[in-house]
């Protein structure tokens, strides 16, 4: 038998994993996964982001893919959409950069300026 507390735990845990079917209000992390992105190493980046989200038990974060946005030389590109904020585009991301992006931007709300497309073009 499950107690009421155990049911509540199941509810919370399962909701974290299936909420992407209903709720579109949380943060979206979009990884460019066209041929250019994959060739530049987007897959390990994507997997790292997912691992970090799992590790820190982040709910309300959706990881999605997108195709080529036309800046193949800057791949892997990761875009972060937070509700009510401007989109932030990170370029030439690798797994260690991805960890920092999740830890600082997603968790603490601090954009990692050095990795953004703005820093790259300077």
């Amino acid at each position: 038998m499950k107690t009421i507390q155990e049911l509540e735990e199941i509810r919370k845990k399962t909701l974290d994993t299936i909420n992407i079917r209903k709720d579109r209000s949380g943060t979206r992390i979009v990884v460019g996964m066209a041929t250019c992105g994959i060739a530049a190493g987007a897959r390990p980046v994507l997997l790292t982001i997912m691992d970090e989200i799992k590790k820190h038990d982040l709910s309300d974060v959706v990881v999605a893919q997108t195709g080529c946005i036309g800046m193949c030389r800057l791949e892997p590109i990761v875009e972060v959409y937070k509700p009510g904020e401007e989109k932030v585009t990170y370029v030439k991301v690798n797994p260690s950069k991805a960890i920092r992006i999740v830890n600082e931007h997603i968790m603490k709300g601090k954009v990692v300026e050095g990795y953004t497309i703005g820093a790259e073009s300077k």
């Binding site: 994993t17 299936i18 992407i20 997912m50 989200i53 799992k54 959706v62 893919q65």
Partner: peptide, 9 residues
């Protein structure tokens, strides 16, 4: 339950 980035319903 595992965490998945995409759900195919």
């Amino acid at each position: 339950m595992e965490m998945y980035r995409s759900h195919v319903m």
